[in-house]
Design a protein around this nucleic acid. Structure first.
Length: 188
DNA sequence: AACCATTGCAACCGCAACATC
DNA sequence: AGATGTTGCGGTTGCAATGGT
């Protein structure tokens, strides 16, 4: 315990929004060394952040395969269906939406879907949950697996290939494995 | 133009599970 | 087997951007 506190005294820890420089440091460090142990990574990279903060930033924002914004209707349907089945298991839900993070889905649910539900809008999802099987949906013989198949990433991708293209800026990486400010922040 | 309310999202916190020593 | 460290998850908060008056 004392060990920890004495350690923390010499290492100031930054909080709050990440700066461009910090992002670049983290991205370039991971590009060159891999992810590894986050606390060690944070120290080795010279970031005055906790490993936890670095991990979160990387997973939710900096990872090249992260897609942000523009949740498609299909994705929304899938989120609603999976949420109706699993509840707030955001990470579990996120695994079925390639490129989406649990944080994003959680935010999306809270800010959009939950709001609309409060406003009294009823979604087709209710048909899935309680409606008769002969409802107009084509899921009359739906099992969990069948539904996942229907809304699986592959299926979504097939229907909406444009939505699954990684953004050009996010996938841009200079030849020597280093990201530039423009690569990273031009997307904002 | 200025103020206030609302919205959306990034980031933090606390906890539990898991891994390692 | 227990202590310690790390990771992953869900809930919550803070704040910038936006809209409305």
């Amino acid at each position: 315990m004392d060990k920890k506190t004495s350690n923390n005294q010499d290492v100031e820890v930054r909080k709050g929004p990440w700066t461009m420089e910090e992002d670049l440091i983290l991205i370039n460090y991971i590009a060159n060394h891999g992810e590894g142990v986050w606390n060690t990574l944070a120290r080795s990279a010279g970031l005055k952040r906790t490993g936890k903060s670095c991990r979160l930033r990387w997973l939710n924002y900096l990872r090249p395969d992260v897609r942000r914004g523009n949740i498609t209707p299909e994705e929304q349907m899938l989120i609603m269906e999976l949420h109706s089945r699993w509840g707030n298991r955001w990470s579990k839900i996120a695994r079925h939406l390639p490129g989406r993070t649990d944080n994003e889905i959680k935010n999306y649910w809270r800010t959009r879907i939950q709001k609309q539900i409060k406003q009294g809008e009823h979604y087709d999802i209710q048909k899935y949950n309680s409606g008769p099987d002969d409802a107009s949906t084509s899921h009359s013989c739906r099992t969990d697996d069948a539904l996942l198949e229907t809304y699986s990433p592959m299926c979504l991708e097939a229907n909406h290939p444009e939505a699954f293209q990684p953004s050009s800026t996010m996938s841009t990486e200079s030849s020597d494995g280093f990201w530039s400010m423009e690569d990273l922040w031009s997307n904002e």
